[in-house]
Design a protein around this nucleic acid. Sequence first.
DNA 1: CGTTGGTTTGAGGAAACTCAAAACCGGTGG
DNA 2: CCACCGGTTTTGAGTTTCCTCAAACCAACG
Lengths: 236, 236
Amino acid sequence: MAARLCHGAELTGEDIERLERLFAEKQDVAARIDLISRGERVDSVRLVVSGLAARYKLLPDGRRSIMALLLPGEFCDLHVGVLGHMDHSVMTLAPSEVVITSQREIDVMMQEFPNIRLGMRWVDLVDQAITREWLVNMGRRRADRQMAHFFCEIHHRMAMIGAVTDGGYALPMTQEELADTLGITPVHALRVLQSLRQNDLVQFQEGRITIPDLAAFEAFAGFDGDYLHLREAKEG
Amino acid sequence: MAARLCHGAELTGEDIERLERLFAEKQDVAARIDLISRGERVDSVRLVVSGLAARYKLLPDGRRSIMALLLPGEFCDLHVGVLGHMDHSVMTLAPSEVVITSQREIDVMMQEFPNIRLGMRWVDLVDQAITREWLVNMGRRRADRQMAHFFCEIHHRMAMIGAVTDGGYALPMTQEELADTLGITPVHALRVLQSLRQNDLVQFQEGRITIPDLAAFEAFAGFDGDYLHLREAKEG
DNA sequence: CGTTGGTTTGAGGAAACTCAAAACCGGTGG
DNA sequence: CCACCGGTTTTGAGTTTCCTCAAACCAACG
């Protein structure tokens, strides 16, 4: 089911079987729990199977910056072994299912299943592209366009994993968390959200996003999904 | 000489010899030339050996966002083969030396020289950490602190490759390019720069940065170099 | 000596922030 | 059933940061 997460590679039945075996070890984690904290030295590896998580950093004065959203199928710390320790933390935003396994198991799996290895590499590279686009988004778009762009991106990423239903998707974030990912204050986040709502561009209620007219919304945001590398994914 | 770029791994004489052989094929590139452009599908790989380059994107209205600085020893497009095409461009900011080689040669080299492979992986991961920190910097620091933080980071990265001399380093960027990397306007960039200069925190003349009191400057910026993973590097 | 690209200055305006405080809402306990 | 609670959302008013537009300045270059 969640095996279609590796968009970058053609997976065989055996590959999928192996992934299912990996996912079988999943654990439940409540919302707002650190999956891994800054400074930790671990040889284990964490993977979000369902729910939602976020990479974040806290500044000395207590402010927070959310640098990435982890959707189902993404790793928290696939490479921490190389760097030695985490330079940021990862927390759940919603009740989630998480696989905690060893670096060794992942290494062996990638050795034996090159398609999986390729797929994971693809996910990792798209993640980097997303982080770069967030930089563009924060630096060169006003808050209303920026927020719209963010909702567009998540829409596409959710669609990628089949999580868009009835023209909308679950995004269980508070306004404060939204503000921390956009780099603005909660008060301003609300005001921007209100203006988007008033223009019927988006609905955001009970942790659910609905975009009545995606094309119009993308035009408003100046969204170009090229950086998500979707076409490559579909065509293999 | 430039072989000490792989901080993440202990390199043997053979490793260094192999890298020197790679660097031997370097070419001169003038300033402000695209090394690779958005949309390109290439099977070649580009590596900055000397000089300075930048990852950037242009928005439809012509504004630009610089998302990363490539210092000597960093790859432009090591992984583009997996994603299919570039989602951004890379240009030189200064006259530079660049190695253009094939994906194949790099793959073979990484196969035969696991230390080099590890070192390159390390550089790649630190790059990701840097991109995330830029996100924090843009989202949660005012322009003066943000600019100071940027200068601190580059100082440390330059020091890593032995490019800090006389307490300063070459940073051949215009104020406009600086503004595009900080996500502000050139006019504002100048004003922030002036305020830093007036407080004797930094000098920026003729493409050269000098920081009279690095500790004080880092304190001002709220800089914590943890994300550069320097200690791991030094200790192997 | 005009052109060009980069730097600098000024003034007014828009975007985003700070500081409160009020309203809301699902849960909890009396 | 209702008062209370903490967390979240909402509203308001005044302030700071940053932007826009426009023009001067300057050194390098042909």
